[in-house]
Amino acid sequence: MQKQTKSVLITGCGKGGIGHALAVEFQNKGYSVFTTLLAHEPRDHLTDIGITAVTTDVTSDEQVRSLREVISAKTGGRLDVLVNNAGICYTMTGTDTDVQEVEKMFAVNVFGPMRMVHVFHPLLIRAQGKVVNIGSVGGIVPYVYGSSYNASKAALHHWGNTLRVELKPLGVDVINIISGEIGTNILKRDRGRQLPDDSFYRPLAEEFQSHVRRTPKTTPPHVYAKSVVAEVTKQTSRIWFWTGATTSLVWFGDTFLPRWIWDGLFTREFNLAKLSST
């Protein structure tokens, strides 16, 4: 009998991002690749190279169920790998946070993966497959101005931890990818963001503007994707896989140093002492 081609579904595959790079790399490994995009996003970067792109909003029960029907029909009711990559970023001080913005972010970053697993778990169990959650070092350390985004990634990490234990008896593995600084478009949404006029952080208004417009030192998406796909396609993958710029430093600090070490480091990096002097 001919061996069935393995399949992967990757959410959030806009051009130039992590999902795009992962899709290309899985295709290079011989996988049948399915991806999701929002209705307004172009898809020729995927379809032109033979990757299936399905318009899907991971915050919609109806759209995710429709996606399952499409993939089930094409794969014989199996899915070898589900990559929960769709995500958005919200940058703001904890005290000035717009909770409605955070609710939108959690709907994508946390409830989206939960919905995907809820809908697709029968296909994953049938294939004895893997769930891959794209996390972040932001979910590990108190990165300033990222309290809400950090919280969404920490929630994803810990949901994945329990999901791993629950799915193991059913033959499905769960992998948390702890991503460092990767060169993607996720920061574009925040580039025009400003502190409120009545914020206690107004003395740092210029520093905040510089932060949201920054161009950090990053790992290119295709390099990141190679490391992730190489790990995921192993027979036995690590349950937490750290990859990308800064992850070695964060792993070492989180593993061996007291947690308060980050307080002083980020206070200096973000010039927070300026608040006390004013």
Results as ranks from 00 to 15, higher is better:
Leu123Ile: 02
Pro203Ile: 07
Tyr143Pro: 03
Val58Pro: 04
Ala53Ile: 06
Thr255Trp: 13
Thr59Cys: 11
Ile177Trp: 07
Thr162Asp: 03
Met114Thr: 04
Thr47Ser: 15
Leu167His: 06
Val117Tyr: 08
Asn185Val: 02
Ala155Glu: 03
Leu123Val: 01
Met116Phe: 09
Arg191Gly: 05
Pro258Glu: 04
Val228Ala: 11
Lys153Glu: 05
Gly139Asp: 03
Val83Ser: 11
Asp48Leu: 14
Asp173Gln: 14
Arg191Met: 13
Thr35Leu: 06
Gln4Ala: 14
Asp190Tyr: 01
Gly183Phe: 02
Ile182Gln: 00
Met114Leu: 15
Asn84Thr: 06
Thr56Tyr: 01
Pro216Cys: 07
Ser179Lys: 01
Thr55Ser: 10
Phe252Val: 09
Asn109Val: 00
Glu25Ser: 12
Val99Asn: 11
Gly253Val: 03
Thr278Cys: 11
Arg126Cys: 12
Phe120Lys: 04
Ser147Gln: 09
Tyr149Lys: 08
Gly76Asn: 08
Asn109Leu: 00
Ala107Gly: 13
Trp251Met: 12
Thr184Asp: 00
Arg65Phe: 03
Thr162Gln: 09
Tyr31Met: 11
Gln100Arg: 13
Leu204Ile: 11
Leu79Met: 09
Ile125His: 11
Glu269Lys: 15
Ala23Phe: 01
Arg115Cys: 05
Ile140Arg: 15
Val54Gln: 12
Ile177Asn: 08
Lys15Arg: 11
Phe120Asp: 02
Pro220Val: 10
Gly87Pro: 04
Gly12His: 00
Thr236Pro: 02
Leu272Asp: 04
His20Tyr: 05
Thr278Leu: 05
Val229His: 12
Lys153Phe: 01
Gly135Pro: 08
Lys74Val: 00
Val141Met: 14
Pro220Lys: 10
Gly253Asp: 02
Lys234Tyr: 08
Met114Asp: 05
Gln2Trp: 02
Lys74Tyr: 01
Val144Trp: 10
Arg78Trp: 00
Tyr90Ser: 05
Arg259Asp: 11
Arg193Tyr: 01
Thr91Ile: 13
Ala39Trp: 01
Ala225Ser: 13
Gly253Met: 14
Leu204Ala: 06
Phe111Asn: 06
Asp254Ala: 15
Gly244Thr: 04
Ile125Asp: 03
Asp254Ser: 15
Phe106Arg: 00
Arg191Ser: 10
Glu207His: 14
Glu231Ser: 12
Gly129Ala: 10
Lys130Cys: 11
Tyr149Ile: 04
Glu41Val: 07
Val232Thr: 10
Leu67Arg: 03
Leu170Arg: 15
Gly112Lys: 03
Ser148Thr: 07
Val165Tyr: 09
Ser210Ala: 15
Phe106Val: 00
Val132Ala: 13
Arg202Glu: 04
Cys13His: 05
Thr91Val: 15
Trp159Gly: 14
